[in-house]
Design a protein around this nucleic acid. Structure first.
Ligand code: MG
Ligand code: MG
Lengths: 400, 400
DNA sequence: AACTTGTTTATAAACAGGACC
DNA sequence: ACGGTCCTGTTTATAAACAAG
């Protein structure tokens, strides 16, 4: 013990299988059995995992992307990234994502996926005064849901998810106390886990101790094997990240941690569960009530469930680094228009008074397809380069 | 080598010599030779180091604080803190600080110190739409200048300080290469040193490499004894802190690091030098030109000076933790009005939609005399508790 | 293939201040 | 009242994993 505190590799940033790949359709690794080049019009291109991409027949600068249900989200991102890079930093292409099907007809039936994500996008849009790009993440989050192709309408009833009374997971085999199967380190960052915790409460706030307990209950690793310093890390994350805001009860006695509403991706643990046992239970099992070993005193067990995340049922989150993500235009939402990679086109009020030479040229050297946006004064006040800003707090879901 | 990377104690947060100290005048440690209770009106109270505090004769809820030139800034802060705590979290008292004198008459001659700080305050005020408190720091910075009682009008010509061509320090004895006297770790955080570096340039921006070089040139510790990881830390700080913004040259080839203008405290190294040798040289020695050992290739040595900070001539900065600092009303600035510790009184636009119970009650349990204010959307957007927000980026100067 | 620059996350630690004993 | 310990919260330092050029 008392190892030198190296960063454990729990959240590897994915290396993109595509490098620059101008026009390759399946150059790199195993294209898999899905490499069906069937029914591709002249303009269509195939990408690994059966992803097809073609120009929209009517809308200019718009690609229609058809994503098989079995496609890995990473493949989707790779394909979008490759296409995005093709267009360069000044590219104007937008993407319309079509889930699941392989028939080209469905491209016209665009309404199929404009309903669910709309809710989340609505609340995001209202904070993008200075930079409408922001939330590629939301789309990918939806993408993640889409690609977890068994859930149907299970875990996305409007993102508010009055959920704490319903954790929607099976997994009742009591974990004794010890290690391997359940006490593995979860693939989530502290920031993500804190969001899981807070978002699991109806009122969306938690005391520090409740956060500790929620995490211990759902990730036995922290109760059983983690060094006690993990609580320090939780506190550190709460303080460090703007997205976590401490509020005080009216009487001033208790302080609660909340999530800045504009920053809340509404991540919940059940969004990242993979339905390992029965992949098609559309309704929540409703209070599975596992009498988990709570050695700490914690009041009455109430009706809370506390189902620990079991072995590998957790989907990894994509890292917060949304550099790879593509801004996506949802089909029916004219209001939401996300041109790819053009931070310079957006109004930056003339406030920059930095005295001289290079000053405010928002030229992004590095081709960030979806530049990360700090929705704060950073851009509006300083009026400086929109190159980069705070990332979106947590990450979308990755299928498989 | 390869020690466990514990945090070195380079910036100790001061323990306040005053605890709660309701009405003590010199309770704690050595009151020093300055404990002259002379000419104190009935309402006046004495604090250590000769600091006197009394009600303003006309303005309600306002204290006049007379600070001897020899007083330590820490004593000043202690006194203000003690008085601030007396008034409790709902206290309304403001402070008018008078420098140097011991005669009560000068309290009427308030104009004496309203000139210099005004410049800095002007540029700060324009970003305090949502929270006019913000900048207790600016005042303390002025306080720091005031207490470095030999500099006179030396290093504060309007904060812009076209300075890189003039570093204003003596110290020409060439440091050979090795350790003790000059290669001690400076008492500044990376964040502070980066600010020193960037603010030393007229144009207020620097490439990463220039920052490295500036720091190595002025703090030989980093060239000679620090582990190479210190550069990692520099980069980490640049990325982490909002105050550092990367800009890109118009051709997109070079990126420069700048300081968000609203966040720039305009700290420069010469502000924290103690004039060890001759404490009363009012004008800058103008290009002392020390041919310092620059082993890295660094272009022509130009006319830059690069005077390394010498042994203990550096005043410590107060830590960024401005929790102890008191909002100060400057005498003649009606526009700048900083009531102490009343975050709740300020308008928080009704945006908070956090669903239920404790929600947005900005009750500060902990008595923070000057609540740290994040001048961003944090408060305006979320409309939540104003309890705490980002700190002011760097810290004022501490005398002695 | 190595190095530089930049972004994130993890971990340890130093403190402050309050609570509780 | 005065300590000692624990808990909560805020900052800073350091190492590291990656990405991209
Ligand atoms: Mg926070
Ligand atoms: Mg930064």
């Amino acid at each position: 013990m008392r190892e030198s505190p190296r960063r454990p590799i729990i959240l590897k940033r994915r290396k993109l299988p595509f490098q620059k790949s101008e026009s390759d359709a399946g150059g790199d690794e195993a294209d898999g059995p899905l490499r069906k080049t069937t029914l591709t019009p002249s303009t269509a291109r195939c990408f690994p995992d059966g992803i097809r991409m073609m120009d929209h027949p009517t809308i200019p600068d718009t690609q229609v992307v058809v994503i098989p249900k079995a496609a890995d989200l990473q493949s989707v991102i790779s394909a979008l990234t490759a296409k995005g890079k093709e267009c360069g930093p000044q590219g104007r292409n937008k993407f319309i994502l079509l889930s699941g099907s392989t028939s080209l007809e469905e491209e016209k039936a665009l309404g199929c996926l404009s309903t669910k994500p709309r809710d989340e996008l609505e609340k995001v849009k209202k904070e993008t005064e200075c930079f409408p790009l922001d939330d590629s993440l939301t789309n990918i989050q939806w993408l993640g849901k889409m690609s977890s192709d068994g859930l149907g309408s299970e875990s996305n009833q409007k993102c508010t998810k009055e959920d704490n009374p319903s954790d929607c997971h099976q997994q009742s085999k009591a974990p004794e106390k010890e290690k391997d199967p359940l006490s593995e380190r979860p693939p989530y960052s502290y920031m993500a886990m804190i969001q899981f915790a807070i978002n699991s409460k109806k009122n969306r706030h938690m005391t520090l101790k409740e956060i500790y307990n929620w995490i211990e209950d759902h990730f036995p690793f922290f109760r059983n094997v983690a060094k006690p310093g993990w609580k320090n890390s939780i506190r550190h994350n709460l303080s460090l990240h703007d997205m976590f805001v401490r509020e005080t009860s009216p009487d001033g006695k208790i302080s609660y941690w909340t999530i800045r509403p504009e920053a809340n991706r509404c991540l919940t643990l059940d969004q990242v569960y993979k339905p390992l046992v029965d992949p098609v239970t559309p309704t929540c099992p409703q209070i599975t009530q596992v009498g988990f070993n709570q050695q700490q005193k914690r009041g009455p067990p109430e009706l809370k469930k506390a189902i620990p995340a079991t072995e590998r049922k957790m989907k990894p989150l994509l890292p917060r680094t949304d550099s790879y993500l593509i801004p996506i235009q949802l089909p029916l939402g004219q209001s939401l228009f996300l041109p790819s990679s053009s931070p310079a086109t957006l109004a930056t009020p003339p406030h920059a008074q930095s005295s001289s030479t290079p000053s405010s040229s928002s030229a992004s050297k590095r081709v960030r397809i979806a530049p990360k946006v700090k929705p704060t004064l950073h851009l509006r006040r300083a009026g400086l380069t929109c190159r980069q800003a705070t990332p979106i707090p947590t990450a979308p879901i990755m299928s498989k």
